[in-house]
Design a binder for these strands. Structure first.
Lengths: 130, 130
DNA sequence: ATTTGTGCAAATGCTTTGCACGATA
DNA sequence: TATCGTGCAAAGCATTTGCACAAAT
């Protein structure tokens, strides 16, 4: 992947992802794309989503025991995962300051970033359980 | 899995895991077990590690794009993942206080816990790159 | 004209599962 | 003796890859 070419497929995939309000799996993006563009293959969806994430246009959000998911937002933010339905929500709260430096000093590692993942139950699942 | 039975295999698997200073994958545990107990199958290692994690005796630590790993520690703590070698280290710093409540209030979710994952370069990889 | 990206199908890697048998309570 | 756990091999999923062709520079 020396030079990036602008293919119609990449633009379509990016457009579809931008329409998602949730953080879809590759398959969810693929299914949505199929509706309007049935010739685009799943391998192409995989390849382009990964490449868009590598170039920083979007983000990959992977949670344990889950297929990879993508986030149309490019900025760094925290996430919440519902233990019941598996849904992932954005958590926009202030980033914790100074914590990278604390860990860096204590362990002699070089830290570039930290992620925070909250786990619990989402509003809908709370409602459904009542 | 109505009642848990104490099998020799489960005890052996737990003993081996306790000897690891890193956070091994299932396969790493399996390979180590093979040396002394070549009849224990990988499926049994999978089943028992999962069950031990469910019962709270150990912890599963999964990182994106990585096979599942297990942690002999049962207490909740943060982790660091090296971007180069993939190794996972424990990060024992004070847990961030109040952050669960902030997110809970803002999003109407019920939060049980949060995980923090640092990403960067470990001491050995820093050394090797020089 | 080159060279990269695509579509397809096959391959890969990790994890789970069905089943008959052995082990545990 | 009634179940549960094990070992084995096969199945299941998510993801990647090889290849010939199409598309982009």
């Amino acid at each position: 992947m020396t030079v990036k070419r602008n293919t119609v497929q990449r633009q379509i995939i990016l457009d579809i992802l931008k329409k998602f309000h949730i953080h879809p799996t590759v398959d969810e993006v693929y299914v949505e794309i199929q509706k309007a563009h049935p010739t685009i293959s799943k391998a192409t969806v995989y390849r382009n989503l990964r490449q868009l994430a590598e170039s920083g246009e979007i983000r990959q959000v992977s949670m344990s025991d889950d297929p990879e998911r993508y986030d149309r937002r490019a900025d760094h933010h925290y996430h919440f995962k519902c233990k019941i339905c598996g849904k992932i929500l954005d958590v926009d709260i202030d980033h914790i300051k100074g914590i990278n430096e604390v860990a860096q000093q204590k362990y002699g590692v070089k830290i570039d970033e930290h992620d925070v993942t909250f786990k619990g139950i989402c509003p809908e699942c709370i409602k459904n359980s009542k």
